[in-house]
């Protein structure tokens, strides 16, 4: 073996030995650069309206996964049907990874307004979790539009608005049990007791002996 060949081999071997004593490269999830993140934050594609969420709940859409990012106390007081509670500060915990990793669910994050859910969305997105949604306006909007919908003012009610209002009235009946005549919202349904069982996504097929 020539001297330079020996030198290269020795160098690689030395590197290999040094490598044993070094730590693993941990976060494997790709991290989205600030530029792309900013671009996506401005795109608003992440928002889903309260009407759409209400429709999915009423249709019992099996792919819907509602995640309440508020504190457990708030969650206990009131939440949406079937929602699970992952407080915003715990959203990146390993135990919650499966919810966001799947292609199966339409994940909808919500809080009282939009900002806490937006923050959670941003943290998820920066770690390359795609397809998560934020319920626009949060529970406040939910109350305003679904639990206590107001008839649009004036006679100039367009067909579209009327349709939307009728839908909301129907949704109101569904969620509050209010009679169609008694306009105002009744007491909201109590939060489901305990954490609803959410089926974890099946583990993907892994290769060979994996």
């Amino acid at each position: 073996m020539k001297r330079r060949e020996f030198l290269i081999m020795a160098l690689l071997l030395l590197g290999g030995i040094i490598a044993i004593f070094m730590s693993d490269i941990k976060p494997l999830k790709h991290i989205i650069g600030p530029k792309q993140l900013l671009h996506e934050v401005n795109k608003k594609g992440r928002y889903i309206s309260t009407d759409e969420v209400a429709k999915m709940i009423m249709e019992k859409d099996p792919t819907l996964l509602l995640i309440d990012v508020r504190s457990p106390e708030e969650y206990k007081k009131y939440t949406l049907d079937g929602a699970i509670n992952i407080p915003a500060e715990k959203i990146m915990d390993d135990s919650n990874k499966d919810y966001f990793d799947s292609d199966v669910y339409t994940v909808v994050l919500f809080s009282n307004g939009s900002s806490l859910a937006d923050q959670s969305w941003l943290r998820l997105r920066s770690y390359d979790y795609k397809g998560n949604k934020v319920m626009k306006g949060g529970l406040n909007e939910w109350y305003r539009t679904i639990l206590n919908p107001q008839k649009p003012a004036g006679d100039a009610m367009s067909g579209k608005m009327e349709k939307q209002f009728l839908f909301r009235k129907g949704a109101q009946v569904y969620f509050t049990g209010a009679t169609p005549v008694a306009g105002g919202a009744k007491k909201a349904k109590p939060a489901p007791t305990g954490k609803p069982i959410v089926k974890r996504k099946k583990k993907e097929v892994t290769g060979g002996c994996g």
Partner: peptide, 10 residues
């Protein structure tokens, strides 16, 4: 461990 893998591969 990743370092061990690298060593073995060497």
């Amino acid at each position: 461990k990743e370092g061990l893998f690298i060593f073995l591969f060497t």
